[in-house]
Design a protein around this nucleic acid. Structure first.
Length: 218
DNA sequence: TTCACGATTCTA
DNA sequence: AGAATCGTGAAG
């Protein structure tokens, strides 16, 4: 099982898979600053109900935080039609198109009238190529998420949501890497990117970092 | 109306 | 290292 390394922390499932996947994180979870929510999102599952009723899902292994008071944030300068969702209530999807090609998927956090959100940068998919969703654009492509999802609430009713991890927070000590954000020019001093060290589905690792060995799958 | 550019990815 | 590709916002 080559992908086993990706799944070390997923393996001690304590409840039936369908049960954990159908749970969704409450809005209160997102009603906190992005830099608080982002690391806690590592290990959660991104879940989408497909047309045939089955659930498409994967584990969130990389996130980034953005906040209005720093220049890398879309809401740093002013509120526009494009970034309006980012200023809205927490617990909603903020989806935009970048480079005219790729969609980026964010969750709105904190409070209304304050641009704040977490970018979902990478997801590990079970029984699929390790890098099928290793990056913001690839993630959006794999889950078929587009501007049509912008402004929608995270909910099972809407068909796209985030489920808590099967095991309790926090993640095993040392498996969460905190580092600088990617693909931005300003605000690079902020260490607001987090990823799961044991996962091979991270978009880009810090220099010299290698996926930590599997712990529990033997 | 025009223009420069981006929270990226793929190819050379 | 460079191209692909287009919606958006600021400028004229």
């Amino acid at each position: 099982m080559l992908h086993a390394l990706n799944w070390f922390w997923v393996s001690p499932v304590t409840r039936p898979l369908a049960t954990t996947l159908s749970q969704h994180l409450p809005q209160a979870f997102f009603a906190r600053p992005a830099e608080v929510v982002a690391p806690e999102l590592i290990g959660c599952r991104l879940v989408k109900r497909q047309d045939n009723g089955s659930l498409l899902w994967g584990v969130v292994v990389e996130t980034e935080a953005y906040s209005q008071e720093e220049p890398a944030c879309h809401g740093y300068r002013n509120r526009t039609k494009r970034n309006d969702t980012l200023f809205g209530a927490p617990g909603h999807w903020y989806v935009y198109l970048t480079y005219g090609i790729h969609h980026c998927v964010n969750v709105v956090t904190d409070r209304a009238n304050w641009a704040n959100g977490v970018l979902l940068r990478a997801v590990a998919m079970p029984d699929e190529p390790e890098r099928i969703a290793a990056g913001p654009g690839l993630l959006a492509r794999r889950f078929s998420i587009n501007r049509g999802h912008d402004g929608q609430p995270l909910s099972t009713d809407q068909g796209l949501w985030l489920a808590p991890p099967p095991t309790a927070w926090p993640l095993p000590s040392g498996d969460l890497v905190q580092t600088g954000r990617i693909g931005i020019r300003q605000g690079q001093d902020l260490p607001w990117r987090w990823y799961l060290r044991s996962s091979r589905s991270v978009s880009r690792r810090v220099a010299g970092d290698r996926p930590s060995p599997s712990v529990a799958l033997v």
